[in-house]
Design a protein around this nucleic acid. Structure first.
Lengths: 180, 180
DNA sequence: CCTTGATATGCAACAAGTTGCATTTAATAT
DNA sequence: ATATTAAATGCAACTTGTTGCATATCAAGG
């Protein structure tokens, strides 16, 4: 249900096409939700059939039509009820935890490679968070009320990423000591 | 694929039935992976059909049979190749982030309720981590080599949970100030 | 001129995970 | 005595997410 809710949230802020939403998932919403284009197109179509969205097909000269989706009153109601119902606890399901659990079975260089590659991914994520922060929340002291929550969310994302990074550095350091 | 890998890891350490694995997911493996009994039974059956596991049916007097699964050499090979291939970055998909993104639209008491309930869940998770630590890693200075990685994994789980808790407390505090 | 990449959309098959239901035995609580 | 919970297993239908393929236009670079 969460993909649905995220789509409703972003289309309520501004109507758009599947492709528009995909771009938002890659930029301003990257710290909140990510999904592939296939998932987005399929879900938008399904939500349209269920009347949560309306769709204006904009014909374009010599180009495929753009399907611009708008939230409907039913969509708003659905979103409100999603917001009102508390989320249950999410199950622990982090593939990396599983790998690290048998860490000692890897050859030393493979360990280093996996950690370094993960470190890289997380650094990139930090950069994209930083870019979002600069673009949207340059002055945290003067945030509008509706900007405060997205800012807090971003802050949590940054801190969780930092926690990961610090841990990786510690494990890398310990590995280095073990080798020497 | 990760569920498969976790099942192979735990069955390699010690063979067991679906129910045994379920118990492990609830206790010693709770910080690594969680899955429902349906998922476990189905996956074990599938892995057996694919020869990654062998199965001894132990008839019990006046009770349903116990199906004890053992890892096969094919299972070991599968696990090795999973360990050797680096994991890609996991997509960001945290329902709570989506909700917090539109935080300002909730009534104040609903916000407090959701955060408090989440705080509670995380406290419980911390407790279970603590229990695992006491039971398995009481003396971190004298860990056996194969215990070091699970211990690190647990430590990361604890820190991530603490990061969440600290963030929740800050947001709760800000909310309290806003009301007064 | 041709290739690559971005724009823009979609289908079909599959894998992963959830929900609801169903069974039997044994132990414990009211 | 009866009810509930835990032990132990499983099916069927569904939702969610992935992978591979397919299409068409346009702009930029070699």
């Amino acid at each position: 249900m969460s993909l649905r809710a995220v789509l409703l949230i972003t289309l309520q802020r501004e109507p758009g096409t599947g492709y528009d939403v995909l771009q938002r998932f890659r930029t301003g919403l990257a710290h909140v939700w990510q999904a592939s284009h296939q998932q987005i197109y399929r879900e938008l179509d399904k939500m349209h059939r269920e009347r949560l969205l309306s769709c204006q097909t904009v014909a374009q000269y010599d180009k495929p039509d753009r399907k611009v989706y708008h939230i409907t009153s039913e969509g708003i109601a659905f979103l409100e009820s999603w917001l009102a119902s508390p989320l249950g606890a999410q199950p622990v399901r982090t593939p990396l935890f599983a790998k690290f659990f048998v860490w000692e079975r890897w050859p030393a260089d493979a360990r280093h490679a996996e950690l370094a590659s993960l470190r890289n991914t997380l650094e990139e994520r930090m950069d994209s968070y930083q870019a979002i922060e600069s673009a949207w929340f340059s002055s945290p002291d003067s945030l509008l009320p509706h900007e405060r929550a997205p800012w807090h969310t971003l802050r949590l994302g940054k801190r969780l990423t930092q926690t990961w990074l610090a841990w990786i550095d510690e494990v890398l350091e310990e590995d280095r000591e073990a080798i020497s």
